[in-house]
Nucleic acid binder design. Structure first.
Lengths: 215, 215
DNA sequence: GATCGATTAAAACAAATGTTTGAATAAATG
DNA sequence: CATTTATTCAAACATTTGTTTTAATCGATC
């Protein structure tokens, strides 16, 4: 019986790893269960046995990575708000953006396999498959709202609608950067995509900070 | 015989329209030829008869919209460079960005059907399907290079690599905005997606201009 | 009006998909 | 050890996919 030992979860984790890889490069429809189980070295039927369906596998793949990431993002965003409240000042815009962006980008180096997931996140909101978008949105929504509220506190002069759109521009810039920087191809539109997470943070933060503060 | 009359091209255009619609909302793999021909009201085999293959249909769909769009973007970008050269000054950053962004967004209102294509463009660079990315990249690359050179002239103080990444952030912000603003769902992460093109231009231009100029 | 090429139509094709089945094997339990 | 449960495995299932085929229909030209 399943008692949390590694022999059983081995199969599940091998499936998750292979699925993560293939979902990232092939998408939900393009990653067939035969390809996934083939790469994982397990039987085709084991996906439906362990997860129930392909959609449930997708959810498991996303949840495994997003949940710990969201935990960090939430903690850092609440830190920014709390420390500002203690000082009696409004939160710093750059700090708020950094609280969301830095964990997201550094996440790549937290786990060697997370790199694959980068490509997947970068496509999450525009994925042609309803299921993928729906699952990702469910996870992203609460964090996005927290980021939004923090940004509104940091920029009390700006209308909320403008902040909303500018955060979407930020997300767009970030996710696009994640997609191309996580790409297998070494070049994308002639830019070297092999860039380390810290450098990318230092590139994107000034850009979006200036954008949020604009005018 | 084909002599350019509307009865013949009618079938091809009906296929193109239906394909554009379904490719946008379902993606390349999700849009089946049966669904496309069904919506177009034509026979299944007519796609392979008129276009040769599904991939060739995809190329035709993209080319039909992208080519005229690229023509406008190229003209406007060259205008920015030329008028700056005549004045003996460097190009204006905002003008350069506007030359690329404005036609892209206004394109939505040039054609009532182009709205569907919006979603497709918004996903073009991160599409899970190799074919889609490859075809879009082929069309986007030369314009992106022109935009890059213009931006380098406008920001002579900045290293080219930084400009390169910031333009990618710009593209990411723009395409993400296109995707959600072209979306069928009226709400996306609680923001109203039904926004007219001019308002979106006025929202995104200050953001990316400030981002390009940052520090 | 007959002929010939272009287009449409219905049917069949082979390949690939997610899922289910039922037997075989392994592991755990009494 | 015997038995029960969990897991693996190969095979088959029913759909769906893009493409091809072959015949029917249409349109223009002689």
């Amino acid at each position: 019986m399943n008692s949390g030992d590694s022999t059983l979860t081995d199969t599940k984790e091998r499936i998750l790893d292979a699925a993560e890889h293939l979902l990232a490069i092939k998408g939900f429809r393009g990653a067939s269960l035969r390809a996934i189980t083939g790469e994982a070295g397990v039987n085709l039927a084991s996906v439906n046995y362990h997860f129930g369906s392909k959609k449930a596998l997708l959810e498991a793949v996303i949840k495994r990575r997003i949940q710990p990431l969201n935990h960090i993002r939430r903690k850092r965003l609440e830190q920014v708000r709390e420390s500002a409240r203690q000082k009696g000042k409004k939160p710093d815009v750059k700090a708020a953006l950094s609280a969301f962006i830095e964990p997201t980008l550094l996440f790549k180096e937290s786990n060697p396999d997370a790199k694959k997931f980068f490509i997947f996140i970068g496509r999450s909101l525009t994925d042609p498959d309803d299921t993928v978008r729906e699952v990702f949105l469910r996870f992203i929504k609460p964090i996005f709202h927290l980021l939004f509220e923090t940004a509104c506190e940091a920029l009390p002069g700006q209308p909320r609608e403008i902040i909303f759109w500018r955060l979407h521009f930020t997300i767009g810039a970030l996710f696009h950067a994640m997609h191309i920087s996580g790409n297998i191809k070494t070049k994308f539109l002639d830019v070297k995509t092999g860039i380390d997470a810290n450098s990318l943070v230092n590139l994107i933060l000034p850009f979006v900070t200036a954008g949020m503060k604009a005018k």
